[in-house]
Design a protein around this nucleic acid. Structure first.
Lengths: 193, 193
DNA sequence: ACACTCATGTAAGCTGTTACATGATTAA
DNA sequence: TTAATCATGTAACAGCTTACATGAGTGT
């Protein structure tokens, strides 16, 4: 997998590591998560499966559907597990996107508890930086700023605070030690998307 | 603008409706919002400006930078305002994405108070649906569900609830205390919800 | 009869990115 | 002098979507 491939390929590989599924199963599962990730269209999903096959990261077994269309059940291979691990090991790409975070979260079983905690902490740093950016922006509001700007900033800050709260309480749930560090120094412009 | 063009073109047009700016100004402003929208790269931003120019939705004035590189300040035209309005009038595309919502929010000044309230309400319906999906998913959790699934669902629900709270309190803030626009000659009541 | 879900797949296109290129000004 | 910020722009490509295509079963 040419290293540029970022999200969907590895995430689907991760799902197949938890249990064998068909393309349609994957779609339904992702759909059940609302827009946390979003259900991929056939135009992206099936090509991914074919690519995983071609790299021997998964195998397929066609089950001729009795009374149903045939289903192609994909299972992860040893090579697939290896590829997946080398992916989960490297830090989440500086993507601040909710999607990337939730994808990793869903595959929590594929990494260790320490890995999960590290992931939460990483996200916390990113959200804190985002929040700091918004606070700074709110501080710069002057007469030239529109109503829309104020409302949007308020919205962003409310959501960021809620996420920080969740991250803190979840951290505490999973570790005895609190995550809280009051020096949320803005590392400033880590913001990409 | 061939109707397929969705986000960035019209949003930038909306920013230019609030005040004339250069491409760099737009970038900086969007960056100041953290990842609420995300700052577009030069590869998408400048082509958009050129496209807006070609359709006479904006004009440009080159200001030879004294001690600085020259800046190209873009201003919206009458045709631009018209195009913008026909965009803000049509309902937000069934995009559940945070980005699309915040973009419209930021341009609150470009639509009426009723429009803003309608936008909030529309978002509320979408978030509520998303939340319901997650609740249903949480109800279906059984022995086959992983830790990651539980945590991810919990995360999603927490964020959705927080957003619903914000939407409700913001709704009350604006429907109780009407927001003033200089030329707010419009439709006094928000009754049409 | 009609529409919808199950189930897979292809082709084309949209929207954005990264990487590259230029060039001047300011701070270490 | 080296790097960073200001400021604009192009070319290539990545990642996804929509629309299309197929075909069987299921429900109204």
């Amino acid at each position: 997998m040419p290293a540029g491939v970022v999200n969907l390929n590895f995430f689907i590989l991760g799902l197949l590591a938890q249990k064998p599924m068909s393309g349609y199963d994957i779609k339904r599962f992702m759909k059940s998560l609302g827009w946390l990730i979003g259900s991929p269209s056939g135009g992206s999903l099936y090509p991914v499966l074919r690519a995983l096959l071609q790299e021997d990261l998964v195998t397929v077994k066609v089950i001729p559907g009795l009374d149903k269309p045939p289903r192609k059940i994909y299972s992860i291979t040893d090579a697939g597990r290896q590829a997946l691990q080398s992916w989960t090991e490297q830090p989440v790409v500086a993507s601040t996107s909710l999607k990337a975070f939730v994808m990793r979260l869903l595959l929590a079983d594929s990494h260790t508890k320490a890995g999960l905690l590290a992931h939460l902490q990483q996200r916390r740093a990113q959200v804190a930086a985002h929040h700091a950016t918004l606070v700074k922006g709110a501080g710069n509001l002057d007469e030239g700023s529109s109503l829309g700007q104020r409302v949007a900033l308020d919205y962003g800050m409310a959501l960021a605070r809620a996420e920080l709260d969740w991250l803190d309480s979840t951290w505490e749930r999973f570790s005895a030690q609190p995550l809280r560090k009051e020096d949320d120094h803005s590392d400033g412009e880590a913001s990409g998307v």
